[in-house]
């Protein structure tokens, strides 16, 4: 279970995971890379918007909110 790779969207709040793969193409992908979502980076799900989406993640010291459309493209594995 812990070794499973799944989309970042499904990472429970408060848990940390490691980025395995960024699956999108083009500008979206470059933007996510620039924000620090590169393979092996550690990302933590911080909080959900009261409406359920977007979700805020701590990545490399900053808190960045992503819509599910984007976070679905990032494959992660739980580390903590």
């Amino acid at each position: 279970m812990l070794d499973q790779v799944f989309a970042l969207t499904y990472l429970p709040i408060g848990r940390k995971a490691q980025v395995i793969k960024v699956g999108t193409e083009g500008l979206i992908r470059n933007r996510l890379l620039d924000l620090g979502f590169v393979p092996s980076a550690i990302v933590e799900a911080i909080r959900k918007s009261p409406a359920g989406d977007p979700i805020a993640y701590r990545i490399r010291g900053a808190v960045i909110a992503l819509r599910s459309e984007e976070s679905r493209q990032i494959q992660v594995r739980v580390v903590d």
Binding site: D34, G36, I59, R60, G61, A62
Partner: peptide, 9 residues
């Protein structure tokens, strides 16, 4: 200063 890693990028 509180977010050096991201900024050093």
């Amino acid at each position: 200063a509180t977010c050096l890693e991201r900024n050093l990028n």
